[in-house]
Simulated scan of single mutants.
Amino acid sequence: MLTVDRIACTGHGICAHILSGAIDLDDWGYPILRDVAPDQGLAAEAIKLCPSRALRWQRR
């Protein structure tokens, strides 16, 4: 499952740009994860490009 560390996130919005079908941005630019399974390749790219390292995979 893809998760976001809301404390570490600095609201750059790169994740929402890459994962537009799985992440929305709130009014301040912080990610809101939808209840859909993101494409794993795109999610890996978003995790790699996150400047604050706030995105990660978490096992259920």
Rank of each mutant, 00 (worst) to 15 (best):
M1K: 13
M1S: 14
L2P: 10
T3L: 13
T3H: 11
T3W: 06
T3I: 15
V4A: 08
V4D: 05
V4Q: 10
D5M: 03
D5C: 06
D5L: 03
R6Y: 12
R6F: 09
R6A: 14
R6P: 01
R6C: 07
I7H: 10
I7F: 04
I7V: 15
I7P: 02
A8I: 07
C9S: 09
C9H: 11
C9D: 08
C9K: 05
T10C: 08
T10F: 07
G11R: 07
G11M: 06
H12K: 13
H12D: 14
H12W: 11
G13S: 05
G13F: 02
G13W: 02
I14Q: 04
I14F: 13
I14G: 02
C15K: 06
C15V: 08
C15L: 11
A16F: 02
I18G: 01
I18K: 01
L19S: 07
L19P: 06
L19K: 05
L19N: 01
S20P: 02
G21K: 13
G21P: 07
G21M: 06
G21A: 11
G21H: 14
A22G: 08
A22Q: 04
I23C: 04
I23F: 03
I23G: 01
I23S: 01
L25G: 11
L25Q: 09
D26S: 05
D26L: 03
D26W: 08
D27L: 12
W28K: 15
W28Y: 12
G29P: 07
G29R: 03
G29A: 08
Y30R: 09
Y30V: 06
P31D: 10
P31T: 11
P31K: 04
P31Y: 08
I32V: 15
I32Y: 10
I32F: 07
I32D: 04
L33Q: 10
L33M: 14
R34Y: 09
D35H: 09
V36L: 10
A37E: 15
A37M: 12
P38V: 07
P38N: 02
D39C: 14
Q40N: 11
G41N: 11
L42E: 15
L42C: 03
L42S: 09
L42Y: 11
A43M: 09
A43T: 14
A43F: 03
A43Q: 11
A44P: 07
A44G: 14
E45W: 09
E45P: 00
E45A: 13
E45R: 13
A46T: 06
A46R: 04
A46Q: 01
A46I: 04
A46V: 04
A46S: 06
I47S: 00
I47K: 00
I47F: 02
K48D: 15
K48Q: 14
L49G: 06
L49C: 12
L49T: 06
C50A: 02
C50P: 03
C50Q: 00
C50W: 00
P51E: 05
P51W: 01
P51Q: 07
P51A: 04
S52D: 05
S52E: 00
S52K: 01
R53L: 14
R53P: 02
R53V: 10
A54N: 02
A54I: 00
A54H: 00
L55Q: 01
L55T: 00
R56Y: 13
R56E: 12
W57E: 11
Q58F: 06
R59P: 08
R59L: 12
